[in-house]
Design a binder for these strands. Structure first.
Lengths: 96, 96
DNA sequence: TTAAACAAGTTTATAATATAAACCAAATTA
DNA sequence: TAATTTGGTTTATATTATAAACTTGTTTAA
């Protein structure tokens, strides 16, 4: 019981998947995230922008050869938010 | 990785809180659930109806003295859905 | 050398969802 | 018997998620 509010930015299937990946591997390119999550490009683009706007990830736009390449990296703020989200969820899931 | 889809009926803060309570205590009255979750009556009513329509809970309308009393009880289907939801979430949270 | 197909995203329109405000009926209290 | 409270439901609105349509530039094929 004692349900703490869940960060609505993380309580979203796709955004949570993205954050989960980046916690593991620190940074990843847009197409790779797309493959791993199975998301459409449009949806992923929107959700990445939200995470970026919140400061949970940084987005670096570079080039790979002459093609554009969007690199996503988790930030300390993102790591901490993820940690708190997981902690809050424990009370809902009967795990912690 | 390998993100399984999350049951959208359970991936909702309030519905998850309700299910979490009912997993613990099996059944509870509407006003009690309302207090524990801090939800408004309208919101809770809608979410309970959704859980009921999915067969995750049963709603029994009785009386307590002469006042109406809405009793919510988790079903086997609800218990199983909750279990699967928690299992699927493990992959997102790095816990299991 | 240009037309067609592809890559890597973004923008935008729509569908789905969550939420609270407004409402209703019955019971209790003043 | 009028006002208030209890126990909700209905409905209108705000928020969110999602995919379709689009853009920009690149590579491939004719």
């Amino acid at each position: 019981m004692n349900f703490k509010p869940l960060d609505p930015l993380l309580h979203s299937e796709l955004r949570l998947a993205v954050m989960s990946m980046l916690i593991d591997i620190e940074e990843a390119e847009f197409p790779y995230i797309r493959e791993q999550t199975g998301a459409t490009a449009g949806n992923l683009s929107v959700q990445i922008e939200k995470l970026s706007a919140a400061g949970y990830i940084e987005v670096e736009k570079t080039y790979k050869g002459r093609r554009p390449c969007t690199l996503c990296r988790i930030t300390p703020k993102g790591i901490e938010a993820f940690r708190q989200y997981v902690e809050a969820l424990q009370d809902y899931l009967h795990l912690g």
